[in-house]
Write a protein that binds this DNA or RNA. Structure first.
Length: 391
DNA sequence: GCGATCAGCT
DNA sequence: CACAGCTGATCGC
């Protein structure tokens, strides 16, 4: 769950993944992907007023994110102000920072492998090269294949700061099965259950709106059937996914449902096997290859993650070799963003630059959805100060 | 009656 | 179990 407050130490005139409070003074906005903890304030009238101020303020997103936003009535009114940027190609953005002060920054979108449309943002300009990862899932070795992290002569770019998805930066999540491993095992179970009886059906319990599309596609290929999804209409911009889903429960044997959705209307005559897709927290005693857990005869829990494991995050951060590391997420069993950044830094064996300005950081990182006043104080008193770790 | 916000739940 | 999101209550306009 993102705790990023929206503002970075560098490029203070832009906001990313937060659209409320102090962020409303920003001159440009970036949305990394369509999960609600990254969209706080996006549907608010205050944010719309900011865009309508006539200062040419835009919301920059990937093409797919734009399509997903516009499929949701809450965001249609933002349409005029949404600018989609291409992947892996640097775009120079001019910004009206103050009344007569122009600033420019080059931004590159990097596909983040978290959910449809998800991207990282690489900013390059006077404040140095800064990488905001958003949420991501990269397997080991992905970083060296990302062109925009390299110069034309294939040398690594110098990265001043990285703002990292530290969701699973905890010793319990050093290893998480790949999506392929998860889905392959999942399909065996589903195949067997469906073959047993023609009234047998599958209920996939999901906890996020987007991020499970890989499963839908693999199941569709393997079982040659469409997957029921109440929210199929949100996928209109993704023809492939749209085509493997159905809104008609009568024709389906596999039902993808949000955990809190009431499914009472669907398939009363069917004999359901429930599969809860969640990311297990692997304990020190747990077997790393453990993917599923049987809860009862007709209920399983399966590990499926759209965030990188701790070792995948380390592999990426080591490769990028930044001077400063900031955490965007407080991992389970970790006290603070600072601790998360410190531990990640140590684990990656990074040598950080001593930068005195960072010690005076006033940039608050917030718990999502808890802003109650203009000064950005959380209701629960959980204001987090962002700071990189100086060795 | 509407939108915004929040507690509670999964 | 903890990846994020929905429902329903309440408040203010």
């Amino acid at each position: 769950m993102s705790c990023f407050g929206g503002l970075m130490e560098e490029y203070k005139y832009i906001s990313i993944d937060r659209f409320d409070g102090p962020n409303l003074s920003s001159s440009a906005f970036f949305l990394s992907h369509c999960h609600t903890d990254h969209m706080v304030g996006l549907a608010s009238s205050k944010f719309l007023q900011t865009l309508e101020s006539g200062k040419d303020i835009k919301l920059y997103v990937s093409d797919v994110t734009r399509g997903l936003l516009l499929a949701d009535p809450r965001y249609v009114k933002l349409e005029k102000y949404i600018a989609s940027l291409p992947l892996e190609s640097s775009t120079i953005i001019q910004l009206n920072v103050e009344a007569d002060q122009l600033c420019s920054v080059a931004v590159t979108l990097i596909s983040a492998g978290h959910c449809p449309g998800s991207v990282m943002f690489l900013f390059e300009g006077e404040e140095g090269n800064v990488l905001y990862t958003g949420d991501f899932r990269f397997s080991k070795g992905t970083a060296k294949r990302i062109r925009s992290l390299h110069t034309f002569d294939k040398k690594k770019k110098d990265i001043k700061s990285i703002y990292v998805d530290t969701t699973f930066c905890t010793p319990n999540a050093v290893y998480i099965p790949s999506r392929e491993e998860s889905v392959s095992s999942l399909m065996t179970l589903i195949r067997e259950w469906l073959a047993k009886d023609e009234n047998n059906a599958i209920k996939l319990l999901l906890s996020a709106k987007y991020g499970y599309e890989f499963i839908f596609h693999e199941l569709n290929k393997d079982m040659n059937c469409k997957i029921y999804c109440r929210r199929r209409n949100l996928y209109q911009c993704l023809k492939q996914t749209y085509s493997v889903l159905t809104e008609n429960p009568d024709s389906a044997r596999i039902f993808a449902c949000m955990k809190m959705d009431k499914l009472d209307l669907v398939g009363e005559h069917l004999n359901f096997l429930s599969i809860n897709l969640s990311t297990l927290y692997f304990t020190d005693q747990g077997l790393p290859e453990q993917i599923c857990e049987r809860i009862s005869d007709n209920s399983y829990r399966y590990c499926f993650s759209f965030h990188s494991s701790y070792s995948e995050v380390c592999d990426f951060v080591k490769y990028v070799n930044p001077n400063n590391v900031y955490a965007n997420v407080i991992p389970y069993s970790t006290a603070s963003l600072e601790q998360a950044a410190r531990e990640l830094t140590l684990k990656c064996g990074l040598k950080l630059s001593a930068n005195p300005t960072l010690k005076r950081s006033k940039y608050v990182h917030l718990q999502p959805g808890k802003v109650t006043n203009e000064s950005g104080i959380c209701k629960q008193g959980s204001v987090k100060r962002a700071r990189s770790f100086d060795l």
